[in-house]
């Protein structure tokens, strides 16, 4: 039986390897091997510090170059942030409300720089405290914190966008709504193609669903994005799309649960 201190070390060690995208097979084997070593060492009166030095980060540094990485984590992170930027850009480009201002430029730079840091810090905090080492599943409190964090994060993105739109600082240039729509549609097409090529169907579906209200409203209802008809139709479509997205999410989560239990 390992001491709590060593258990915590192993948990943090595993999560540190996960967040650095280390190969799963190596993660499992190394964790088992260290567990075996620490169990024997503790039985013979040797401390965790004299085996590993005590610091997870420093110890992993000595091993890191020997453990291969999988590209999945980095690829997913990049895709997530490209998706977030696309989500806040493409619909407003198609809808004709996109602004080419200095504040918007700052907003995108901050999203790209702060986003990964905030995401990494939060994920690590939640994983270390609320993940089962054996199943690698987050407990209920962890899921609750994930939801709170997601709301806080989306709030920051939306709040930042609101500030950038209301305090433009300096207008870089202006394009006609027709050109904006064309750029938006090209970006949407490119995004869908790339996500399909990467076999990330959910991202392709989500960006289509988010952009669809503006595409339909612009193409079939009215060309003026500020008209009452346009706003009403796009709002109704946004509600329908939200319901659809949640239905798809629930369907896939139930399907996954069923597969796991089998």
């Amino acid at each position: 039986m390992l001491s709590k201190k060593s258990e915590r070390f192993l948990k943090e060690f595993r999560i540190e390897m996960m967040t650095r995208g280390k190969n799963e097979e190596y993660r499992d084997e190394l964790e088992e091997e260290l567990r075996d070593h620490l169990t024997m060492a503790e039985q013979n009166g040797t401390s965790l510090e004299s085996v590993t030095g005590g610091s997870v980060k420093n110890y992993l540094k000595t091993l890191s170059s020997e453990i291969p990485e999988t590209n999945d984590l980095k690829r997913n992170l990049v895709l997530l942030f490209v998706f977030l930027i696309g989500m806040f850009t493409i619909p407003s480009l198609i809808g004709g409300s996109f602004d080419y201002t200095l504040a918007m430029l700052f907003y995108y730079i901050c999203t790209a720089l702060l986003g990964p840091i905030l995401f990494y810090t939060a994920v690590k905090f939640i994983f270390i405290r609320y993940t089962s080492l054996q199943t690698e599943k987050i407990d209920k409190m962890g899921i609750f914190l994930c939801v709170i964090y997601a709301v806080f994060y989306m709030g920051m993105l939306s709040g930042g966008l609101y500030l950038a739109k209301n305090y433009p600082l300096y207008e870089l240039f202006e394009l006609s709504t027709q050109i904006n729509m064309t750029i938006g549609l090209i970006l949407l097409g490119a995004f869908i193609m790339v996500t399909i090529l990467m076999k990330k169907w959910f991202y392709a579906f989500l960006i289509t669903a988010i952009s669809l209200p503006d595409v339909i409203s612009r193409l079939f209802i009215n060309n003026d994005p500020t008209s009452g008809n346009y706003l009403m139709v796009s709002s109704i479509l946004v509600i329908i799309v939200n319901i659809l997205v949640f239905a798809v999410l629930i369907f896939y989560s139930k399907k996954e649960d069923k597969n796991t239990s089998n």
Binding site: Y26, L30, L34, D36, H37, A41, T46, V51, T52, G53
Partner: peptide, 26 residues
Amino acid sequence: GYQITEKLKEKQFPDISEGSIYPVLL
């Protein structure tokens, strides 16, 4: 792993911290 560190100590291999054998084994 653990046995390797014990044998290294037995054979008086100097200045070895137990955890440092794992990068070598990898």
